Structures are given as C-alpha cells and as structure tokens.
Amino acid sequence: MESTMTSRTLPWKPPPSGGVEPLPVGSHWDAVRVAQPVGERALQHLGAESGAVIQDTYGTLYWLVAVGSARSWNLRQVRVLTALVDEVTYLGVPSADWREGPRPHWRVPLGPGRYLTDAQRLWEALAAADHAELGPRVEGRQLCHRCQLPTDEPVIVGEEHGGSLGGGITYACPRHARDYPPSDAEALVTALRRAREGAGA
C-alpha cells in the first residue's frame, strides 16, 4: 500500500512491494554512490536535509539528485552515476517498503517530501565527510604504503623520517587508510610542506 501511495507522488514508479528493480540513472534522477565510512558521516552532517538514500548489501550509500546536478564532482570515495552518450548505467532500486538490511533497502525512506537531495548541500556534506574521514586532499597519484599499488585518491597516513631530504609523507589508498591510526591532519600537512621545501633546497 505504501509503495503505491509513494508512486503517485513521484515522476517514476518504484518497484512493487518486496523486490529490487534495476532502473536507469539519468532519466528521472542521477545517483551519487558513496563508500560507507564517508557516507555515514555525510548522513550525520545532512540530518533532516537528506533526501531518500539507498544502501546496498555492502553498506554503500546512494543519494538521488537532480539529473546533471553533480557531474563535475571530484571527491574521494564518491562516484556520480549518470547517463552517458554510449552507455546506460542501472541502479538497483528496492521497493519503498524495504527499510532494513542486509538486503538493499532505503536507509532514508522514500516518500512524499523526501525524494531528491539538494546537490549543493550534499556536496558540502560529502566534502566535510571526505576531509574528516580521509584527511587533507592530495592532488596527483601516489603509491599506497600498504598494498604498494598506485592510487588516484591518496590519503596521508603518516610521516616518514630519515632519508637525504629529511623525511617525507606516507600515503595509503582509501581502502587501506582505515588500517592506520588517526593522525593530526594539520601536522601532516606541515610535514608535507617541509618535505617539498627540502626537495627544492
């Protein structure tokens, strides 16, 4: 009954009760996919300002936003799902009455007055969550200290001491950054600056 009532207030029809249906993004909405640690903190920042949010079986969160409103975003652990010229992307959308995991469900229920999230407000919450969870943003590709693979989303996790330049910065990919103890972000940024100044000396 609730799913039917919800569908009457939306420009698209959620799947029938008790199911999940792959729906194309970029038609009525785009989706912002966020890894769980950053997503959970963003939910806290947004509070009642959040629109409906889907959570999948892995804990990943998906916000629905207006089509085209988030295409230029560049945040760690965040991917915008939208329509492409030569590719169709689908998102598994649960019925409106699925509100508990571990199956895909509405973490923030879909309903009248709670549908799309304001893109600017979501970006602000995600940017704050990104910084809080992953520390200062570093531009460019770095090598993860743990898995020894290059990452385009490096996280500063420590300061290396010694060496001809008097030290450097230890980086990790977002997946392995959580394995390191929390660090003082400002102190690490200062260390990075010292390393750069030393390299140019």
Rank of each mutant, 00 (worst) to 15 (best):
V80T: 02
A31I: 07
L126P: 05
G168I: 01
S164P: 11
G47K: 04
W106N: 08
E40L: 14
S95A: 13
S69L: 06
R146I: 06
E100Q: 12
H145E: 15
E87K: 09
P104R: 01
D86H: 13
V93M: 09
Q120F: 08
A129I: 10
D184P: 06
D97W: 09
L84Q: 15
A83Y: 07
D56S: 04
G111R: 00
V25C: 03
R76P: 02
T117A: 14
W63N: 05
G200I: 08
L10G: 00
D130F: 08
Y180A: 15
L43Q: 07
Y58S: 13
V20H: 00
R121I: 06
G200A: 15
H145K: 11
V67W: 03
C147N: 14
V80N: 04
L84I: 08
Q142L: 00
R41V: 05
G26E: 07
V38W: 05
T89G: 00
S183E: 14
R196S: 12
S183A: 15
A52Q: 00
G140L: 03
R71L: 15
E186F: 04
S17M: 09
P109M: 06
A96N: 06
L122E: 01
H105A: 09
I169N: 11
A83T: 10
A199R: 13
V80Q: 07
V157Q: 04
E153K: 12
G26S: 08
W73A: 05
Q148Y: 12
E160N: 10
G19R: 12
E160Q: 13
G39D: 02
A191F: 01
A48F: 01
C147V: 10
A195C: 00
T4E: 15
D130L: 06
G168K: 00
A132C: 07
D184S: 07
E21T: 12
A191S: 07
V138M: 03
G163K: 03
G47C: 05
Q142V: 02
R71Y: 04
P102G: 09
E21A: 12
P154S: 14
S50Y: 00
P109R: 03
W73F: 00
G135F: 02
S7H: 01
R178Y: 05
Y171K: 05
A83G: 09
P24C: 11
I54Q: 03
P11W: 07
G140N: 13
